[in-house]
């Protein structure tokens, strides 16, 4: 019967693909297991490199071949996804408060910072400026950002680590130069009036600035700044302000997940690897500031010395900063009006 043909054909096509689904779901498990590293937005290239070095090193050491998967999005939403069930073995998020949110919900055990060297901080970073070639708007330091006609690109502090750090750096730039809280508030209020779009994550802002060519200055991670300048030859340049914030992307093993999946040993070895000299060099090559001072000294051309003030300069700690500036109804909500 000709009338049956179309349906039969469609059904066969659909059913024929179904087994593929089952096959596709159960990925071939490497004998040593799989790790999922849930990280923030601009670290994709860094972790790709670190994974490529760690996997063979770990195999040599233990004889077990593992695979590592990466997930990247804005830091806040990544923390949220892990809470919602994304099975991260390790989280390498932008801000302490995002990692600590997992502890508050019981996924990470208390005292997680003490279980890794240097309070679970393997590298640090900061927020710098990227401007168009020749710096046509003459942007040298924080006060220049709110000159008339300057458009600033930076992500949304509500979702992004980069976004929150840009805010904190701007706030601290005023406070560290002797300004009052009121002056700091006025400065950031004006700064966000110069911000036409707030992307969700760091990489979204980079695309807006470097590829869509919107805005005059991009407040971004130091590593992201170097990457975007390298990727758009002759179009952009980096401006180091006189001071900025010391950003501390802590790393942690997600206890609840590794214990259920039986990947604790591998996950811990993975994070310990970050402290090795080899990994510290990889970090520096990707323009993250290694905590190993001897390694950092070799990269001062790319990672110049500048005053990096700690979070304690403007708040009691990272958690306090989160509450004071970014909680619902806190300072950011009171100064930011989306419609201009």
């Amino acid at each position: 019967m000709t009338s049956k043909n179309p349906l039969v054909v469609v059904l066969e096509m659909l059913l024929g693909l179904c087994p593929l689904l089952g096959v596709g779901c159960g990925q071939a498990n490497p004998d040593g297991g799989e790790l999922l590293n849930v990280s923030y937005d601009p670290t994709r290239e860094l972790w790709r490199d670190i994974n490529a070095r760690f996997i063979p090193a770990y195999e040599q050491q233990t004889g077990r071949r593992i695979s590592i998967e990466q997930s990247h999005a804005s830091s806040g939403s990544q923390a949220r996804a892990v809470l919602d069930g994304l099975e991260a073995d390790v989280v390498t998020l932008a801000l302490w408060s995002d990692t600590d949110a997992l502890r508050k919900n019981g996924l990470i055990k208390d005292g997680w910072e003490e279980r890794l060297p240097n309070h679970a901080l393997a590298y640090y970073s900061t927020i710098v400026f990227v401007v168009r070639k020749g710096n046509p708007k003459g942007i040298k330091d924080w006060p220049d950002l709110i000159k008339p006609g300057v458009e600033i690109i930076t992500p949304n502090p509500k979702t992004s680590g980069n976004g929150r750090l840009s805010f904190l750096a701007a706030w601290g730039a005023v406070r560290r130069r002797g300004g009052s809280e009121e002056e700091a508030r006025r400065f950031v209020t004006e700064l966000y009036q110069h911000t036409p779009v707030l992307d969700n994550g760091a990489r979204g802002s980079t695309t807006t600035f470097a590829q869509k060519k919107i805005g005059d200055v991009h407040l971004t991670w130091e590593n992201e700044a170097h990457l975007e300048v390298a990727e758009t030859p002759g179009e952009l340049e980096i401006v180091y302000p006189s001071l900025s914030i010391r950003a501390e992307p802590f790393v942690a093993v997600v206890d609840a997940n590794v214990d259920r999946k039986g990947t604790r040993a591998t996950a811990e070895a993975y994070l310990q690897f970050l402290y090795t000299e080899e990994a510290q060099h990889i970090l520096a090559r990707h323009h993250y500031r290694p905590i190993n001072e001897a390694v950092r000294k070799q990269y001062t051309a790319q990672l110049p010395d500048l005053e990096l003030f700690p979070i304690t300069a403007i708040a009691a700690d990272w958690e306090d900063a989160q509450k004071k500036f970014f909680a619902n109804g806190a300072i950011f909500d009171s100064i930011y009006k989306p419609s201009r």
């Binding site: 994709r44 998967e69 997930s71 999005a73 980079t206 695309t207 590829q211």
Partner: peptide
């Protein structure tokens, strides 16, 4: 999706990722 490269990225998600990674 959870944004896991090589696991939960469909074609439209992959387009965005590649674009963001300067792989135009």
């Amino acid at each position: 999706s959870g944004h896991i490269a090589g696991r939960t990225d469909t074609m439209p998600l992959r387009v965005e990722k590649l674009f963001q990674e300067y792989n135009t």
